[in-house]
Amino acid sequence: MGSLPYGDVENSLRALAGRAEGFGRFAMGGLHGPLYFVTNLSDDGPGSLREGCRRKEPLWIVFEVSGGRGHDVDGIQIKPKSRHIWIDRCSLSDFDDGLIDITRQSTDITVSRCYFSRHDKTMLIGADPSHVEDRCIRVTIHHCFFDGTRQRHPRLRFGKVHLYNNYTRNWGIYAVCASVESQIYSQCNIYEAGQKKKTFEYYTEKAADKPEAKSGVIISEGDLFLNGAQACLLTEVGDDHVFHPSAYYPTWTMEATSDSLKDVLRICTGWQSIARPADLMVAT
């Protein structure tokens, strides 16, 4: 069986700091800061996720409460102008809408080793075709498991997304969608269809500052399409129309698609029990 990135630091929370890959690789986490505990699902106030995110000092944000079906929560929204963020090993299930939304010039973000299951709209990057400032958005999504989620793995407007070594299966509409002016580089992912076979979708929209409507573009390199999954790539699009990740970061941890990779992503993504630092500091 293969292994996930950062396997050498699985048992040390603080050792994870600075180990992000991709666009969010400069996220330092709480290397020199305390832990902040999310203890409720309120939109604001003490113990809420919003309260932790507005802190200026470095923090590890640790969830002490779960959310999902039956809870009045809207997922994770990153806005405005957030930068250098690393979302790692989340388990998110049974939401109806907007599980992770990255909007309003938020950029240089990595989402890794997360488990998503049983909900409708998974990840929206770029909220609206009028938000032309979202052209700056850059996101890396790797080693995640999208398990029976309906759509948006992700759906992208304007920005650039590098997908690698993710496992997406049994989607309800499409797996990945490129909309207005977006660029997606899909590399060594596993797409396993259920009843719906279309893997890549393209939505045409008009940017507020452009006269004509456009869709986005997708490049697929080394992807594995299973159970009749249809890539539906645009034949007129060449590599020169899509960014290459090496233009932004020199290395990333990736392996060829295989049954071993599927096994690792099924078992090891999502929330994991990690030892907290011996010098535990708690933000108040």
Rank of each mutant, 00 (worst) to 15 (best):
W252R: 14
D72A: 12
E205M: 14
C136D: 14
D147F: 03
Y115E: 05
A15L: 07
A20Q: 00
S48E: 09
L31G: 10
L99A: 05
G172M: 13
H241L: 10
S3D: 12
L16D: 01
E181S: 13
P46W: 06
G172T: 09
E255T: 15
S117V: 07
A275W: 06
Y249R: 03
F95N: 00
E64S: 10
M254C: 15
V180F: 05
T122Q: 04
W86L: 03
D88I: 02
R266K: 14
Y191P: 00
F243A: 04
D72H: 09
F225T: 01
L163F: 03
L233W: 05
D223C: 15
P34G: 11
D263I: 00
C144H: 01
E221H: 11
H84T: 07
I85E: 00
L16I: 04
K214E: 14
D128S: 14
E192F: 05
Y203S: 07
S215T: 15
P211L: 11
G47S: 06
S12M: 04
F146S: 01
Q151A: 08
G238T: 12
S93L: 10
F116C: 03
I102V: 11
D259Q: 14
C136Y: 05
T235R: 12
S220F: 01
A127R: 12
P245N: 07
A127C: 08
S12F: 02
M123I: 15
I267H: 11
Q272N: 15
T122P: 02
D128Q: 10
R152H: 14
L124P: 01
E181A: 13
R157Q: 12
H162I: 04
T251G: 05
L234S: 10
W271V: 10
R104L: 07
S66H: 07
H162V: 08
H142C: 08
G70D: 09
L99N: 03
N189I: 00
I76V: 14
